[in-house]
Computed example of a mutant assay.
Amino acid sequence: MRTKHFIMTPIILLGLTGCGMGEDSKDSELALIKTTNPSPALIEKNTKEDLDLVESIKHDIASMKELYDVAIVKGKKDTLVAYKVKHFYRFQMKKIEKKMNEMLEKKYPDENFTVSSDYKIFLEAVKLNEKMKDPNFSQEKANKELKKIIKLKQELT
């Protein structure tokens, strides 16, 4: 009986420590738990103007005191803005979204925004951002993925 304990204990300990070894986890795996603060993603042309535009949008959104994490993905026609609201402001989410939409439409009238505070949309935006860092992930696939996320957002409302 004692020898079973001496044999089983190290095996169990090795199994448990082996499961926790994945230190190089992606942002998308932890996006719902902690602040990931992903950089804005551009699907189409990476011109200086477009990069400045998405950085400006991110800065404007991130400056809102009610938010703590923002993911932005800009496609050919649409721009997805997914954000997380601080717990203290959860009861004011409609008001926050309205304020954000007004600010974005006023400051960037030529852009077509899809704004969401839904965690699933945020997570999908972060995953798309990570996929786009892979050189084998084409713009066409990225556009399809963005359209899928926007469609999912519209189905949720």
Rank of each mutant, 00 (worst) to 15 (best):
R2A: 11
R2C: 11
I12V: 08
L13E: 06
L14N: 09
G15D: 08
T17I: 07
K26N: 15
K26G: 12
D27Q: 15
S28P: 08
S28H: 11
L30S: 14
L32A: 09
K34M: 11
A41N: 00
E44L: 12
K45D: 13
E49A: 06
D52N: 15
D52E: 15
E55V: 02
S56Q: 09
H59Y: 14
D60E: 08
S63T: 01
M64I: 02
L67C: 03
A71W: 02
I72F: 02
G75N: 03
G75F: 01
G75C: 03
D78K: 05
V81K: 03
Y83F: 08
Y83L: 02
H87M: 14
H87L: 14
K95V: 01
I96G: 00
K99P: 07
K99Q: 13
E102V: 04
E105N: 10
E105T: 02
Y108G: 01
Y108H: 04
E111C: 03
V115L: 03
S117A: 13
F122N: 03
L128Y: 00
K133S: 13
P135S: 06
P135D: 09
F137Y: 08
S138M: 08
Q139V: 08
Q139N: 13
K141W: 07
N143P: 14
E145I: 00
K147G: 11
K147N: 13
I149W: 01
K153E: 04
K153Y: 04
T157P: 10
